[in-house]
C-alpha cells in the first residue's frame, strides 16, 4: 500500500507547516506558564499524588469503644476472599452477649490483590481498606499481618473506632 500526497500550494512551502507546528508549541507553553495548577505533570518527589477517597490500601480492623476487636469471627471475609489469604482462628467469648471473637487473624499481604471484597462482605463493619499504601520489603520481611499489625499499628493511634457500638447496634436492629 502506498500513500500519495497531493501537492497543493501550501505544502510546496515548508514555512507555513513549521509556523503551524510552532503555534501549537507556544500555545501549550503559554497555557502551562499562566495556569500551572492545571498542568498534568507533577513535580513528583516534592508534590505527592493525592489518592482518592476510595483508594484501597492496607487493611484496618476496627475496634469497639473499649478497645477490643469488633470482628465476630464469622469467616465471611475468608470465604469471599478470591486469593484465599485470610486465616482466622475463632474462640468463644466469656461475655454471653458477644458471639465469638478471633484469637488469630492473619492476612498474607503477598497474596492479597486489594480487591476490597472482604470489606464488602463484613456484616459488622469490622474490616476496612485504609488509605496507606503497602511498603516494599526485602526477602524475609514480615508480610503476614496479624492482629497487632492490623488493628493497633502506631499510625492508627490505638485503633479506629466505628460509630455504633454493640448495644446501640442491637437496639437499632442493625
Amino acid at each position: 500500500m502506498s500513500i500519495v500526497k497531493k501537492e497543493n500550494s501550501l505544502s510546496k512551502w515548508y514555512l507555513p507547516g513549521i509556523l503551524k507546528g510552532l503555534g501549537i508549541t507556544f500555545r501549550n507553553l503559554i497555557k502551562n506558564l499562566t495556569s500551572r495548577d492545571e498542568m498534568l505533570t507533577l513535580n513528583y518527589p516534592e508534590e505527592k499524588y493525592e489518592y482518592g477517597p476510595r483508594f484501597k490500601g492496607n487493611h484496618v480492623l476496627t475496634v469497639k469503644k473499649d478497645g477490643s476487636l469488633r470482628c465476630t469471627a464469622c469467616m465471611l471475609c475468608a470465604t469471599n476472599c478470591p486469593a484465599d489469604c485470610i486465616t482466622i482462628v475463632a474462640a468463644e467469648h466469656d461475655d454471653p452477649s458477644v458471639e465469638k471473637y478471633p484469637i488469630n487473624y492473619e492476612i498474607d499481604i503477598l497474596r492479597c490483590v486489594f480487591c476490597g471484597f472482604c470489606e464488602e462482605a463484613c456484616p459488622v463493619d469490622a474490616i476496612r481498606m485504609g488509605p496507606e499504601w503497602q511498603v516494599p520489603g526485602v526477602n524475609g520481611a514480615s508480610f503476614i499481618n496479624n492482629i497487632s499489625e492490623l488493628a493497633y499499628r502506631p499510625s492508627l493511634g490505638g485503633g479506629i473506632k466505628t460509630v455504633l457500638d454493640d448495644e446501640e447496634r442491637i437496639k437499632g436492629g442493625i
Partner: peptide, 17 residues
C-alpha cells in the same frame, strides 16, 4: 529478588521508595 512490592497494582510511591 532485591525488593518485593506487594499490591495490585503497587503504589507509585512504593517503587520510588
Amino acid at each position: 529478588v532485591t525488593r518485593f512490592l506487594p499490591g495490585c497494582p503497587p503504589s507509585f510511591d512504593a517503587i520510588q521508595t
